[in-house]
Design a protein around this nucleic acid. Sequence first.
RNA 1: GCCGCUAUGGUGUAAGUGGUUAACACGCAGGCCUCUCAAGCCUGAGAGUGCGGGUUCAAGCCCCGCUAGCGGCACCA
Length: 506
Amino acid sequence: MSVRVRFAPSPTGQLHVGNVRTALYNWLFARQHRGAFILRIEDTDPERSRREYEVQILDDLRWLGLDWDEGPDVGGDFGPYRQSERLALYRDYATRLLEAGWAYRCFCTEEELERERAQARAEDRPYRYSGRCRQLSEREVRERAKAGLPYTLRFRVRPGPIVWEDVVRGPIRWEAEVIGDFVILKSDGWPVYNFAVVVDDLLMRITHVIRGDGHLSNTPRQLLLYEALGATPPVFAHLSTILGADGTKLSKRHGATALREFREQGYLPEALFNFLALLGWAPPHEVGELLSREHLLELFALEKVSKAPAIFDLQKLKWMNRAYLKAKPLEDLVSAVAPYLQQAGRVPTPLDEATRAWLQRVVEAVLTHVEHLSQIVEETRIIFEYDLGTALTYPEVREVLEDAGALDVLRRMERELADVPVITTEAFREAAARVREQTGRKGRALFHPLRIALTGRPSGPELDKLVPIYEIGATLPLPRPIPSVRDRLRQFLEWAERVRAESPSR
RNA sequence: GCCGCUAUGGUGUAAGUGGUUAACACGCAGGCCUCUCAAGCCUGAGAGUGCGGGUUCAAGCCCCGCUAGCGGCACCA
């Protein structure tokens, strides 16, 4: 029988990275076995389910690079793929269980059940439904139903052990005694989760259920249902939870948790894919950890997935994302980064060719500092902003202002560059070499004042890269024009005079 | 409270059937490079495998007990 697996998110919010990892493992497993990957929407909670979330979830999964063979948008032979559209199916199966005696009508009211629960709590005893309606005679049932009393359908739990072999956990044993007769159909006719999944997985011919370990304790109930329906249950694989840095469940407290958020911050899908795959599983040492989709497909092994919960290490994600950024063609990076810069009002919105070409230099210059794309805005301030006012906050800038030798370097540099038609990196270097001869200053003493004057900051990309960026940038139709190298030197020197005049040597 | 799951450096994971100095990657520290910060390269520190017993010539791997964390115990999913 060919492999069929499913990912079944509920459209009640954004896709959590923990669920994404589950989807990923399902996808890898399906593709490895040339099986089918199915998407099913678990929207049996009409209160919280929203169609927008469903749309967003599908979109995010697609962005990550996952594709599915059957699902609400693409259809398939075992649909519909939204639980809310399968209600008749659940009712049908529930009726079958009722008629076969596996289930019974329960007329207990909310209040009665609450009383039972309170009682159990008071006696410090685990709560389990008493089974009061289990013994109702046929006549009683008929009378109550005729009286219009609402009822649920409860499953008659049989005694004895429930065992299964979990692909990641190994053998698991559960005593049925700890499970009370549970509801399978609510009084409003909607199925309860545990029942719906079994009916769906059964009808969709799911062979392997790969899901989060939160479902571990649902498994015994589901197994009981398969038993009652006379069906062979699928193979189960329960994945451990993903935790935050402090060892508690990964939540908004830890920062971004939704795939969408990482996407918006400019993490690359291939990096997230790689990173998530490594949360709970590791490839052999020899191949390293930077692995393409194809490579992961080749190496991944569900049986080798770790039982222990994994901690989401943002630092490692950043490292990995940078590795993928570095490997990406510059033109692609420019396209990826442009929206962030446009939104910040730094480059024009239909991007002209000249600016686009220039952006390649910009991206190349700041790339080593960028961990995720949205940082481009911050990292390019040194290019788009030349603000001598804030420059004063850096002690290094003050040092230059108070160093006559440094100011002399700048003045001479200005003179050397005065007649240069185009200040290229080479022209800049040559001019600097002449200043070195004139002043005897070299290395840091020579270049650091230049850096400060040109950028207004003590650190940043290499001047060799910055110089052409400033020169070309000054000629572009940017929303906020940037000054050329010459302009910067002039402005800085004028500003230096002014500042020195205002605050005489201290 | 009851039931279940888990436990190797700061983090993710390695270490076929028990066998020498517990490995790889991220991070961290230092160095090299260099006009600066990064990047890159090199070097290094960091765990004796949750705790306590046992079996054995030998235990991260086997057995027993305990602790902690997580999950579940719904007419939520």
